Amino acid sequence: MNDLHSTTHGDRRTMKQVAAAIAISGGKVLVTKRAGDQALAGMWEFPGGKLEPGEDVQSCIVRELREELGVCSTAGEVFMTSDYIYPGGAISLIAIEVALHSHCLALTVHDEHAWIAPGELLSLNLAPADIPIAKELMKRHAAN
């Protein structure tokens, strides 16, 4: 289990599985701010969404980026997983490395997007499940 403010004995099969995109360009990572009518409104996150039944995480992130940002992408490897218990239920946030085919985004469920240096991620009001992923990005990019 990762170092999280999370589950200590959760079973991932009962957790909602959510894919999150780790898209890096020019040394900066893409983050999006949740719209006012969404859960966690006003918080920043790595874009993505819930896995559909029978869907693998790579297919999910490609679909979610197309639906939420209007962008085509290619999914890569799992970067890491962050488990977190929100008041509405537990999630397993699976961060996937992705390559975007365009940086021309059309926001549908977010108010804003930004490309942020990994070292600046914790200055944002990040959703709790995204914080361990941000910390790991900072650690890996500091080592490069």
Rank of each mutant, 00 (worst) to 15 (best):
G49I: 01
G49D: 07
E52F: 13
E52G: 01
P53M: 01
G54P: 01
G54D: 08
G54H: 05
E55A: 12
D56M: 07
V57S: 05
Q58I: 02
C60V: 03
C60E: 03
C60P: 08
C60N: 07
I61Y: 10
V62N: 11
V62D: 14
V62E: 15
R63K: 09
E64V: 07
L69R: 09
G70I: 08
V71T: 14
V71R: 15
V71N: 14
V71H: 12
S73G: 14
S73N: 10
T74E: 15
T74Q: 14
A75D: 11
A75M: 06
G76S: 08
E77H: 11
E77R: 13
V78P: 03
F79W: 09
F79C: 05
T81A: 14
S82I: 02
S82M: 03
D83I: 02
D83A: 14
Y84S: 02
Y84C: 06
Y86Q: 04
P87F: 12
G88D: 15
G89Y: 09
G89C: 07
G89S: 05
A90G: 15
A90W: 02
I91E: 09
S92V: 00
S92G: 11
S92F: 01
I94N: 05
I94A: 04
A95S: 06
E97M: 11
E97F: 03
E97G: 05
V98R: 09
V98I: 11
H101Q: 09
S102R: 06
S102E: 12
H103F: 13
H103G: 14
L105H: 09
L107W: 07
L107M: 08
T108Y: 08
V109N: 09
H110Y: 15
H110S: 11
H113K: 01
A114D: 08
A114S: 14
A114Q: 04
A114T: 03
W115F: 05
W115E: 00
W115V: 00
P118S: 03
E120R: 14
L122Q: 11
S123W: 04
S123K: 07
S123E: 12
N125M: 12
N125W: 07
N125P: 01
N125V: 07
L126D: 04
L126W: 02
A127P: 00
A127W: 00
A127R: 01
A129D: 05
A129L: 02
D130N: 11
D130K: 00
I131H: 00
I131R: 06
P132E: 06
P132W: 07
